[in-house]
Design a protein around this nucleic acid. Sequence first.
DNA 1: CAATTTCCGTACCGTACGGTACGGTTCGGG
DNA 2: CCCGAACCGTACCGTACGGTACGGAAATTG
Lengths: 219, 219
Amino acid sequence: MIAEAGRMPEFSPRQNVVLEQALRLLVEGGEKALTTSGLARAAHCSKESLYKWFGDREGLLAAMIAHQASKVRTFERSGERLNAVLLREHLELFARDLLEVLAGDVSLALNRLAIGQSNRDGSKLGKLLLEHGRRQIDRRAIALIDAGKRAGLLRFDDADAAYHTLYGLIVSDLHVRMLLGEPGLKDNARQAQKAVDAFLTLHGTQKDSGEALRAASGR
Amino acid sequence: MIAEAGRMPEFSPRQNVVLEQALRLLVEGGEKALTTSGLARAAHCSKESLYKWFGDREGLLAAMIAHQASKVRTFERSGERLNAVLLREHLELFARDLLEVLAGDVSLALNRLAIGQSNRDGSKLGKLLLEHGRRQIDRRAIALIDAGKRAGLLRFDDADAAYHTLYGLIVSDLHVRMLLGEPGLKDNARQAQKAVDAFLTLHGTQKDSGEALRAASGR
DNA sequence: CAATTTCCGTACCGTACGGTACGGTTCGGG
DNA sequence: CCCGAACCGTACCGTACGGTACGGAAATTG
């Protein structure tokens, strides 16, 4: 173990190119299309190098998840002072970002891959995907609603429970439906508004309606 | 096409036994464990019979979904007159049933299977799973909340949207987490209560708290 | 420039899958 | 009782995968 944990592995540029090709193959053709031979051909490298760099197939899959996660850094700017309008805007932005991320090609492909493997490998990939892909966005949301509580705009006992409520209101069963092949929503922004309205009805401290606030803030 | 639609295929008893074995193999070992040879061995039938009965592998998977769906008939008793207590109880019962179904071994295995195939076969299995496995429970819930509205106990514009809200409050991201290999909840009933409380806060017409109602009804 | 390491492309190996073919057996109808 | 259909068990075929081995090219190092 090295002192600087959390950002240790990180691959060489050449390896990143290979991982990018691997993701492309996975997105285009699913798990069956991601073969060692196929990846070597597509990325113009040798199978021998693949096994030297990533160990075996599972190591390659794990590397793909880590690589993808390293591309989605979520910024946390919690500097500004919150008011009701700002909180609502940040919540809606989070909701739209979440819906967009979940509907992304690569996200869906990786989730399908991990789910497909999750009952024969002891769900190692599943754990990895949840930790790498989810922790970032979870922390952003919890930090936001915690700030809302400190500013007296939200009321709840358990931040984690409140966050799960928010998540459920935003996503409902959409994620699973998309994983099963259904198309996404026509209007993510509308869904984000509705979800945040409901969330503020449940946990907000002010009685103003979403409509009124949106009218007041000029959209 | 035969006149009696909706319950046409239905397999012979022998075939149902084979399908049951197929589900067992799938639950125990995932998709990789469900091979034609393995199934023939486990079910004491010949591969030739499998191909005669189900066509090919995909036909077998579809038959497994249909077979499983045929076992989960949901009863609709909408006779009795609704009041606030009764509505809440029915909503909580629905929530508990939903959580229990989603956490079931066979349900998780079939969902994993369909999701794993959904980006290489045009999501045919995904459609099938959503239609067979979901329509029943969706209709039960929508009938319930529609009855709630007719009884003046619920208020909403779009029953479908309200149902999706209820679903999100009950399930949140739990289904995906379980598909990825995480264990389920410790207490489904508690989660069901919380979700129904929130749903009634959003769409109920009466201001009584869940706590008060539960105390009044003696649990 | 020479030595050494890294890498590529290909060929190869064992295995296991989906699907087919076939001989022997069971079983129900005439 | 006999015939045909359905079925079982097994053997077989072509294919494609994960993983390894090897010879030669390219790049790195001193």
